[in-house]
Nucleic acid binder design. Structure first.
Length: 268
DNA sequence: CTCTATGTTTAATT
DNA sequence: GAATTAAACATAGA
């Protein structure tokens, strides 16, 4: 499910289902996902609260309720929200359910097969939320400011793009696809990128994100190179390869994604 | 059985 | 301290 486009889609669903609703009953006993992990404390904070707004930044969703209560949802790798009827049987991957009153859905349920997601209640914004960098869909992308935030870093550009404090919401798919569009090798260190390179990356991110929106984050066919190692590069025909960067599989074209040597630097 | 997966945190190492 | 890397987490599907 989860990169920024998917999270925005889920956020819109939740807003539709939860707007103005009051939380009547909670079943959230998965201690791995829920914080505070005690169902009693979790329920006490949310029961009887009314939903004011639902929004997101990057991969985090924030549901604001009355009395300053906030519920943060991170979808991890396999998280999703669905609307359901009160008393509907729960499937194998359902991890929490909230029964609502008002004109919204009867209930909403959080599903998460792998259980990497989180549901956190707090009376304030949590650090995971506060630390997030700009969200490309809400704050836009700007080459100059992205270049400024990359300049002091030496790590590989792809790892930096996936760092949620640099940009909020970029995941393995968008980072991989964007760098291919920009023709930049994902291993290139941030500090050797020129402003022109960063501008190309911004263009690549826009293209990759637009593609995700068009396909609603679904369908293998939307990928140009993600998951396509050993297949021909759609641009130059060379054989795509897979490497591991920051623990994540990364596809790239060794032919048309070149590292950028920088004349004034000898890191290269 | 083995390998991989749209993510993040934490421990270990340099 | 900063930065990098590996491991861990949990489950489903090829």
């Amino acid at each position: 499910m989860p990169e920024l486009v998917d999270v925005h889609i889920v956020t819109a669903k939740l807003w539709r289902w939860m707007r103005g609703a009051k939380v009547r009953r909670i079943d959230a006993s998965d201690r791995r996902i829920v914080r505070p992990s005690s169902p009693a404390a979790f329920g006490r904070a949310l029961l009887g609260r009314t939903v004011k707004t639902v929004g997101c930044r990057g991969k985090w969703i924030r549901i604001e309720l009355d009395e300053g209560v906030r519920l943060f949802s991170h979808l991890g790798m396999t998280g999703d929200w669905v609307a359901c009827k009160r008393g509907a049987p729960k499937g194998a991957s359902e991890r929490a359910r909230f029964e609502l009153s008002g004109r919204a859905a009867e209930a909403v349920a959080y599903l998460d097969a792998r259980r990497f997601g989180r549901l956190i209640v707090a009376g304030h914004d949590i650090p995971e939320w506060t630390r997030l960098g700009p969200d490309p869909l809400q704050d836009g992308l700007n080459a100059r400011s992205l270049a400024a935030s990359l300049a002091p870093r030496r790590r590989a550009i792809k790892e930096a793009l996936m760092d949620q404090t640099v940009l909020a919401g970029i995941g393995n798919i968008v980072a991989t696809e964007a760098l291919w569009v920009a023709r930049i090798d994902p291993r290139t260190r941030c500090n050797v990128l020129s402003l022109e390179d960063v501008a190309a990356i911004v263009g690549g991110l826009r293209t990759a994100i637009r593609t995700e929106i068009k396909h609603k984050g679904e369908g293998e066919g939307r990928f140009r190179i993600y998951g396509r190692a050993d297949q021909p590069c759609p641009r130059c025909g060379a054989r795509l390869v897979a490497i591991v960067l920051g623990g994540r599989t990364t596809a790239l074209c060794p032919q048309c994604q070149r590292r950028r040597p920088h004349p004034s630097r000898k890191d290269w």
